[in-house]
Structures are given as C-alpha cells and as structure tokens.
Design a protein around this nucleic acid. Structure first.
Lengths: 194, 194
DNA sequence: GTCTATACAAAGATAGAC
DNA sequence: GTCTATCTTTGTATAGAC
C-alpha cells in the first residue's frame, strides 16, 4: 500500500462519513487530493474496490482498538465501555461525520455486495464484542441487567450508531453524551440498601 | 395532490427506504411506475422537491400516529411505547427497508438543505414526544429511570433507529425485538420487595 | 505515478407533439 | 398527463503520452 493510496483511503473515508457512498464521485476525491480523476483510478480501478478497501481498513482499525481496550487491566466494565465509546464521541465532536458503517447502513441496498459484507461483518463483531464484555462484567458484578447479554449488547451498539446519526442533524453533542449516560444508568448495579 | 403524484411519492419513499436518496434516479421511479422520466418531472420538476415532499408526508403521517397513540386511554406507558414502536417493527419485517429518515441520516451532508430541515425536524419531534411520554409515565409510576427524561428519550429513539439499520445488515428481526425488549427492562419499575 | 484525452452511459431537466 | 426527443452535465472507466 503506497502513501498515495493511503491518502486516497483517508479522503474517501472522510467523504463517506460525511456524505455516504453513492453521493461520492472520483471527481470529489481528485479535487480533495489535488490530482486528476485518472490518478485515482490508477490506485483503485473501481469505485466498488475503493469502497471495500476503505471499510476493510476501518473495520480492522476499530477491531484493534477493541482488542487493546479489552486487554486493559484493572478497568471496570463501565470504564471499558467509555473507552469503547471514545471513537464515537470523537466523531460526534465533528460537525459532519458519523461512523463509516453507520453512514453506509442507510444506503445498504445500493451498496456493492462486497461492501455489504464488510458492513455486516463490522456490526456483527462489534455486537459480539459488547456481548462478551457484558457477560464478563456481570460475572464480576460491576454491571447489572435483566436477561441475557445479547439484547443489551444490541441495545448499546444500536444506540451509539443511532445517536451519532441524530446528533449530526441537530448539532448537539449532548445527543451522544446523553445516550451514553442513559445506557450507564441502565447498567449500574443497584447499590445495596444499608 | 393527484393520484399519480401520490403513487410517485409511494415509490420514491420505498426506494429511499431501501437505497437512500443519492442512489435514486428518475429512471428508477419511471421504471417502477411504468412511465417515462418526463412524466415524473411533470409531477415533480426537481429531485430535491420530490425528496422534500416525501419526507414531509412521512413526517406528518408518523406525527398522526403519535398523536393517536398518545390519545389512547387506559394504556400503560410501556404499552404506549409498544404502539409507538410498531412502525419500526413493521419495517423490520421487510427484508430491505428502514425508517425513511434513518436512511437519509446516513447521507445527511449530501442532502438538499430543505430535506435536511425535514429530517432534523422529524428527529426532534419524535424525541420530544418520547420525552413527554417518559415524564408522564414516571409521574404515574409505571416506568422508572434515573435522571431527567430527555437522555432516556434520546436513548430510546437512537436505539430504534440504529437497531433497524443493523437489522437490515444481518436479516435478524431479533435485532429490533431485542432492542425494544432491553429498553423495557431498563424502564420497568423495581418490584417492591415483599 | 500522473497527465490529457476520450469513450460511454446515466443523470437531472426541458421543449414541444399528442 | 404522457410521450419522444434532446440538451447538458456528471459519472465510471480506459488508452496512451510523459
């Protein structure tokens, strides 16, 4: 992967996060990189291939974040949840970006099959990760909730994705912060009555 | 509004719910309606105007649902929440549709300004409605949660939107059902210890 | 690896006949 | 209201020079 190819991926990712995949053209990328369309095609012959490469890289990066977060010792489950939420809160700090896969999910049926697979895989592995986190947390006793962990993991993940999307329409960072805060109140173990 | 114009709105709405706005062309609509592109332009001269009309109608319809639901007497807050969730669960029963505004949110920065306003208004009024529902419910004592109602309203709405988007990528209706179920466990008032 | 030039299809939109 | 025909721009993609 050359440096230029990486920059193209960077630009494409930012564009998708802001405007989605269908609305992006090679011209947009060329303008941002200050080269011609043909140069972009040299590095990524097809738009479908470019889109797939962007999602793959994004997916891998966030997976590394999750593995690093899970490896941290001495953190409470709620602290780990905070660390997990950090990338989403960072997106919320921008005026125009959401999660790459959250953006792509809205136009899912218009995506090339290869991209659909990457997006679906991203969602699945995040929810699996959250499920394991909740399971461990409940065993340790620092989170509490009714029923099996899978529905709660789905709630957390769905809420983060949805919260980011809503936030961009109202410009209120509180949208995502509120969602995270409300989730925590749902998970906080009941303090033993004295 | 003529019957044909209504059918165009129907088709456009379905197409957006499945594929987003940017990926839809007048040709797609013309094919679905079995007429030529020019006929569509007769009813809706610009794509921006057509998109805006679709969102406006959708917004209005769901607002009517909310008003009808809120007017129902003798329902518990959790029952009302179920009624509110019905349209989302109906979308979840299709293989390819999400909430119209949920789909549009992913490509928000690529939308015409007028459509952005409608989407933002839709989100705002839904969250406001949920906030009032929660406030009343807590007063009546049939739901319980920590802190002010706004964050919980935001959590519920974000989770429903996000849940639908994730559901479409994994084809599992359980995704949305789980989210609703998990939300309910978060809201259920603690049963008085005997 | 980037450029110019070009091919070809699809897009949004309009004119004017029926 | 719908059609055919057309305009103009944009989109994805390739060929070949530098």
């Amino acid at each position: 992967m050359t440096a230029t190819a990486e920059r193209i991926l960077d630009i494409m990712q930012e564009l998708i996060q802001a405007r989605g995949f269908s609305a992006i053209s090679y011209q947009h990328i060329a303008d941002a990189l200050q080269v011609t369309k043909a140069s972009i095609h040299y590095h990524f012959p097809t738009k479908s291939g470019l889109g797939t490469a962007v999602v793959r890289r994004y997916r891998q990066r966030l997976m590394e974040v999750m593995q690093a977060v899970a490896a941290e010792d001495g953190r409470s489950t709620l602290e780990i949840l905070d660390l997990y939420s950090t990338p989403y809160l960072d997106f919320a700090d921008t005026p125009d970006k959401v999660c790459l896969c959250g953006a792509l999910a809205g136009e899912y049926m218009a995506l090339p099959a290869e991209m659909q697979g990457e997006v679906a895989g991203f969602f699945a592995e995040h929810q699996d990760w959250l499920e394991r986190l909740l399971e461990r947390g409940r065993q340790r006793g620092d989170v509490a909730f009714d029923g099996p962990p899978a529905p709660m993991a789905r709630l957390i993940f769905s809420a983060l994705q949805g919260g980011l999307l809503v936030k961009r329409t109202n410009g209120d960072i509180g949208q995502v912060r509120d969602v995270v805060a409300a989730l925590k109140t749902c998970l906080a173990p009941a303090t033993q009555p004295a």
